[in-house]
């Protein structure tokens, strides 16, 4: 597999892996949780690096995902105390965890090589640099297989627990009354989100991770309210957006993750304007008839 193809494949798989759980996050009105988790995993990554030494190790991803889960649990605890109102609980914990991460990085702890730049925007090209080779044949970037595993995990989880996710997302009270363990499913799901964000972090950085998770789902939600078509549309948008974003970045020699986030955002705006205009046309037709 050539280098460019490898990078494109990695971008595609990362976009898909993020987009799937993003649908449920958006519908649960917890979209900004991705912003919190994507920053909170930093200290986990730095400490994991101390022990494991490789960014693409599954152990490191699990360890860092636990820090991400910490922010989920902490935020929900703060909400439950009722002491902090609005969306403020979300903004209280992740800056502290991110600060600890930055301080650890700044101390160049035990030769942890983690560029501040990578933290922010990731580096798709760097992540795709080491190829997996069998004999003389390159099978593409090694990290591609890490993201592929995460994607499969997400798809498997959503398929297996589709009904449960659906009912807990749209009607948590009903789910609770039906004797359903809403909390257990919720934490399993949030742990999966945390794993996904951590894995995507290296390839995409914290900002693109937010874009990849939420924007495709939000764009699809402009068009449909029903879950199955929304999931399919989200996946399609993730693929098209990743290709267009990567192409734009490549053509303009721009930063990959920044350009991809921007392209995803633009796509949302286009769909928003288009749906509004078609709604206006339909309304005026209805009036004239």
């Amino acid at each position: 597999m050539s280098f460019v193809v490898g990078v494109v494949a990695l971008a595609l798989v990362t976009a898909l892996a993020c987009a799937v759980p993003g649908v449920f996050l958006l519908l649960r009105k917890d979209a900004m949780m991705t912003e919190a988790v994507s920053h909170a995993v930093l200290p986990g990554i730095v400490i994991g690096l101390l022990f494991v030494g490789a960014l693409d190790s599954p152990f490191l991803i699990l360890a860092a995902a636990l820090t991400g889960l910490l922010v989920v649990l902490g935020t929900e605890y703060l909400r439950s105390t009722g002491l902090v109102e609005g969306d403020a609980p979300l903004g209280l914990l992740f800056p502290a965890l991110f600060s600890i991460g930055i301080i650890l990085v700044s101390q160049r702890f035990a030769n942890v090589h983690l560029d501040e730049h990578v933290v922010l925007v990731g580096d798709l090209n760097l992540a795709a640099f080491i190829h997996l080779e069998v004999g003389d044949v390159s099978l593409g970037p090694r990290y591609l297989y890490v993201m592929l595993a995460v994607l499969l995990l997400n798809v498997a989880f959503v398929t297996r627990f589709f009904k449960e996710l659906q009912v807990t997302t749209f009607d948590p009270d009903f789910a609770q009354l039906s004797g359903f363990s809403v909390r257990r499913l919720h934490y399993a799901f949030m742990f999966l989100v945390s794993i996904t964000i951590t894995a995507a972090f290296y390839a995409a950085g914290s900002i693109l991770t937010v874009a990849l998770m939420i924007v495709p789902a939000a764009t699809a939600h402009l068009v449909t309210k029903r879950l199955p078509p929304m999931l399919a549309l989200t996946a399609a948008i993730a693929v098209v957006g990743a290709l267009a974003g990567f192409g734009a970045a490549y053509a303009l020699d721009a930063a990959t993750s920044g350009a991809m986030a921007f392209v995803f955002g633009l796509g949302f705006v286009v769909v928003l304007v288009a749906t509004r205009m078609s709604a206006a046309v339909r309304a005026s037709r209805a009036l004239t008839v």
Partner: peptide
């Protein structure tokens, strides 16, 4: 103008503006 709630709208705004910012920085 849509059925997106504030948290989702914030995330989209973040992606659009910060993504644009990073692109211009480049």
């Amino acid at each position: 103008h849509s059925r997106i709630t504030m948290d989702g709208a914030m995330a989209v705004s973040l992606a659009l503006f910060f993504g644009g910012g990073l692109t211009l920085m480049r």
